[in-house]
């Protein structure tokens, strides 16, 4: 029982960051209809930015984290502005190829700048774990979960409580009508891509110190984010949140009780199963945002 609970706690921490990744991608995918392969690179970018500022430049860890998130937003906005804005209205394959090209460029830039050896990031949190009964969790992981939950909450508020969020929801429903109603669709697209990218960078900045920053860390992150989006339904933030936690739990229990080798296969099997049984996602009443 203790072992099972420990697995659940492990999954919970991971699930928070998975949810961030998923929410970021589901916004981009849902609103802009872009199969975005740069998402995982933004995740890696977040981790490397924390490494750069906290480890190399000696900034406070928390400030480095904030810089990484803001940096992710700016980089996302730049990608949208330079590569995707000129292609508005192009079919889904075309924009996808451009994001694959951007992904190749970004990953190799990381490899060139940081080298192939993974980088460790230390944090101000004590190494001694918090122990509750038979369950242990490190303070860093508690921090990761709390920040992830705060960011998830913040994104909810943004979508439901702000004018920008309203514009995003309207664009999701029907972009042409929204444009006719006088909404600045181009601005909304840039904002969406920027927020989505920022969330991916935040997830990377949180997980970087827990694991290591490596140039290839983005590959699996992109694929997992796709799994979460499919699981939760296109453009569905609640779905992506639940999907993120669910994927983490399935992976962790699968690795613990079935075979750790198939840990990463779980997400893909879920994609295939969900798409074959219920292509709109498990939590979708209909396609919607919010």
């Amino acid at each position: 029982m203790a072992e099972f609970l420990q697995h659940l706690v492990n999954a919970l921490v991971l699930g928070g960051t998975y949810a961030l990744l998923g929410i970021g991608l589901t916004l981009i995918f849902g609103i802009m209809r872009i199969v975005n392969f740069t998402h995982g690179e933004l995740f890696a970018f977040g981790a490397y930015f924390v490494y750069l500022f906290a480890m190399l430049l000696g900034f406070n860890f928390f400030i480095a984290f904030a810089i990484a998130v803001v940096g992710g937003c700016l980089l996302g906005a730049a990608i949208e502005f330079i590569l995707l804005r000129p292609l508005r209205g192009a079919d889904i394959e075309t924009t996808m190829l451009v994001t694959i090209g951007a992904w190749i460029i970004m990953q190799n830039t990381e490899l060139l700048v940081w080298g192939g050896v993974a980088k460790a990031i230390t944090t101000p949190f004590p190494e001694t774990p918090l122990v509750i009964g038979a369950i242990s969790v490190s303070p860093l992981r508690v921090f990761v979960l709390v920040i992830a939950l705060v960011l998830i909450g913040g994104t909810y508020a943004l979508i439901h409580r702000t004018k920008l969020g309203m514009g995003m929801r309207a664009t999701f429903q029907d972009s042409e009508t929204a444009e006719l109603m006088g909404l600045n669709i181009r601005g909304i697209y840039t904002a969406t891509f920027s927020i989505g990218s920022g969330l991916a960078a935040a997830a990377g900045a949180l997980l970087g110190p827990v694991f290591l920053a490596a140039p290839t860390m983005g590959d699996l992150a992109s694929l997992k984010a796709f799994a979460i989006v499919i699981l939760g339904g296109l453009g569905n933030i609640t779905g992506a949140t639940i999907g993120g936690f669910l994927l983490a739990i399935i992976e962790e229990l699968g690795a613990g009780y079935i075979s750790s080798g198939y840990r990463d296969a779980m997400g893909f099997l879920i994609i295939i199963a969900v798409l074959l049984v219920k292509p709109t996602g498990l939590f979708a009443r209909a396609e919607r945002i919010g």
Binding site: L223, F226, A227, F268, I271, I272, P279
Partner: peptide
């Protein structure tokens, strides 16, 4: 998009 992702997942499963 769904076709793209389902084929991608299939390849990853075969790899694993």
């Amino acid at each position: 998009a769904y076709f793209i992702i389902v084929t991608l997942s299939f390849a990853e499963v075969t790899r694993l």
